[in-house]
């Protein structure tokens, strides 16, 4: 199978990679770019562990061909924190609220939360739960994740006001 040269723009960085047309975005992110924060939980679009943001919307990177991401703007979990010391407010809130246990669903959860808050900065609890309906978690029972996102929304709103 002839490889295709594509340009991926991930977290603001440009990568040129040659990929077979049948390769999934999640595999290229993880294997070719070494961005292993994006996880594979089912490879069928059911669990949300592979969620990334492409051109502003959350997608399942396990059901997206890498060639289809050519020159699109991608954000992965590695792109949220400005530095290890300075987490994104959603990430910080996950840490503080005990929303992380085994952590395997966490990157996808955080990305779905980001997509939700980008589109709806003040979600109700029900809207948060709806926004997470494509992300399965087996450890937390979701409640602390929902609380963390609610708290992050509040914090982001007040810091936006100050700013």
């Amino acid at each position: 199978m002839a490889k295709q040269n594509i340009e991926l723009i991930v977290n603001g960085d440009r990568y040129e990679v040659a990929v077979e047309p049948n390769r999934m975005l999640v595999d290229v992110l993880r294997e070719d770019l070494g961005l292993t924060g994006t996880k594979i939980g089912c490879a069928q679009g059911d669990c949300g562990a592979c969620t990334v943001i492409m051109d502003g919307v959350s997608i399942s990177s396990c059901l997206t061909l890498a060639v289809e991401a050519h020159q699109r703007d991608l954000t992965t979990i590695e792109g949220l924190a400005t530095s290890p010391q300075e987490l994104h407010p959603i990430q910080e809130s996950f840490v503080q609220h005990g929303a992380v246990q085994c952590g395997y669903c966490t990157p996808g959860m955080v990305m779905s939360a980001k997509h939700l808050l980008d589109n709806n900065p003040k979600p109700s609890e029900q809207e948060i739960r709806q926004g997470l309906s494509g992300n399965l978690c087996r450890c937390t029972g979701y409640n602390k994740i929902v609380e963390a996102i609610g708290a992050a929304a509040g914090k982001m709103a007040s810091s936006a006001k100050e700013g």
């Binding site: 679009g45 059911d46 949300g48 969620t51 919307v57 959350s58 997608i59 399942s60 059901l63 997206t64 779905s112 997509h115 939700l116 709806q130 926004g131 997470l132 309906s133 494509g134 992300n135």
Partner: peptide, 9 residues
């Protein structure tokens, strides 16, 4: 239907 991500795609 489906999930947020699938509906986005």
């Amino acid at each position: 239907m489906a999930t947020v991500q699938i509906r986005n795609m």
